[in-house]
Structure formats: C-alpha cells, structure tokens
C-alpha cells in the first residue's frame, strides 16, 4: 500500500454558533461541528450530502462582516467563523395545475403566476446567495422575458434551500418560479419520447405477457442459462 504520511496534530478552531463560542477540531463541516458542540440536530439536516437543501447556512467571520452562504454539510469550518442556520424561510407559492399551464405565443405564464417578479431591480443578491453557484438573477430575468426553457436550464441544479428568498429585498421566491418553469418545460416543451409511449402501449396490450410468464415459471438452472446468454449492448 501507498505510505501514509505521519499524522499531523489536529488544530482546535474557534467557531461561534449563533454568537456562542465553541472550540472544535479542524476538518469538520459546519454540520459535524454543530454535532461536536453537542447539538442533536432535528431541523437543518437532511441528506448530509449536498442534495436536499435542508442545511442552508449564513456565516461570516469575527474580523470580516461580509455575509457568506453555504450548505452546512458541504462547508468546512474555518477559524473565527460565525454561523447561523436558516432551516426554514417563509415563502408563498402560486396556485396552479400543471395541466393548465400550456405555454402559448404572446403569454408569459411565469409572470401570470408570479407577477411580483416584475419588481426585481437586479440587485443580484440572489445569485450571490446561491450555495450551488447558480445564476439566479439571470434566470429571474429569463422568467420576466418569458423564456421558460432558459429558466429550466439555468435553474436545474436548484436544491430549493430557500436562501435566495431569504435575501431578496423584494420578497421574491426565485426557487418557486424556477420550479414552475421546470415543470412546464418537462410537461409541455421537452420533445416527446415516442419510443416510451409505444412501449407503454405494447405493455398495456399484453405484448410481453407470454414471455414474462414463461420466464417466471422457468427453473433456476434455465434462468441462469438465459441470463448468461444475454447479449450485452456496448456502453454508448
């Protein structure tokens, strides 16, 4: 095996959890540091892997007031970090049924659902806030223009953590606007996959029933034989 470097001594760092100072070993994330401090987390923890947006965190440093943003599970602690979690931020969602949102020429569904987005004055706080580094203001501009496809593309990696809404001076909820845009795009605008619809119909008509019944009844030895004889399609 490759040689292991000699273990270095672990440094203890000062962090401030909602203003209260704790000493924690370096190398922890904000989330595991909170647990090191003794918190048994209920709110503000989900997948622990950067996919769910439960652990939106705001922080700065004792010597630097600039506000920064991160997912608590994905950010390593630093000396003199001052942290507070925003596990929930109030927001409203427009009422809609995706079946009634077919985009039509000359209409802007997103502005109809969220008329307030026209009050965006381009401060760009949302973009600066996003822990996924998405171009939030850019997709809000696209929403105002009615470019649903662009909103869907730019917002695809959104975790719905809510930090953008927490910092918007106009009280907008970019993540909800983007969610509606993606659902409209997925439902109406993405080109249809005919091969899938054909297969669904074939299954409904019972095309594979005989073959499946036969496989279900086959002995293990027979199944093993057929499994081993499968033709493997090359990876594309």
């Amino acid at each position: 095996m490759a040689e292991v470097a000699e273990k270095e001594k672990v440094q203890m760092l000062d962090i401030y959890v909602m203003g209260k100072r704790y000493k924690v070993p370096e190398g922890l994330t904000i989330q595991t540091a909170l647990e090191y401090c003794g918190y048994h987390i209920i709110r503000g923890c989900g997948c622990r892997a950067g996919f769910c947006g439960a652990c939106g965190t705001i922080y700065n440093f004792t010597y630097d007031p600039t506000i920064r943003y991160a997912l608590g599970c994905q950010k390593e602690i630093e000396q003199n970090m001052v942290i507070t979690q925003i596990p929930f931020f109030p927001a409203t969602e427009a009422l809609y049924n995706v079946e009634d949102l077919e985009p039509k020429e000359g209409e802007n569904k997103l502005v109809e659902l969220y008329p307030d987005i026209l009050t965006c004055f381009g401060c760009n706080n949302c973009t600066k806030t996003c822990p996924q580094d998405l171009e939030v203001m850019e997709f809000m501009s696209a929403a105002i223009r009615g470019d649903i496809k662009r909103v869907a593309e730019l917002s695809f990696d959104c975790l719905i953590c809510g930090l953008c809404a927490a910092r918007c001076p106009q009280g907008l909820q970019p993540y909800n606007v983007a969610l509606a845009a993606r659902r409209i795009y997925g439902h109406y605008m993405a080109p249809k996959s005919q091969h899938n619809l054909n297969r669904v119909k074939e299954i409904e008509e019972g095309k594979f029933n005989v073959e499946l019944e036969e496989l279900k009844k086959a002995s293990e030895a027979e199944l093993r034989k057929r499994y081993a004889a499968r033709e493997i399609e090359p990876a594309k």
């Binding site: 995706v98 695809f156 993606r182 997925g186 993405a190 249809k192 996959s193 619809l197």
Partner: peptide, 21 residues
C-alpha cells in the same frame, strides 16, 4: 416505462436526445 411517462407528465425533465428519445 409507465412510471417514466407518469413522472414526465408531472413535469420531470428527463435527459433527452435532440429528437426527443
């Protein structure tokens, strides 16, 4: 296949080739 279709009907954006497949 119907599960995939159902999710798309709710608005799930599957990765697609330009022809829609």
């Amino acid at each position: 296949p119907d599960a995939i279709r159902w999710l798309e009907s709710l608005g799930v954006e599957w990765d697609k080739e330009p022809d829609g497949s």
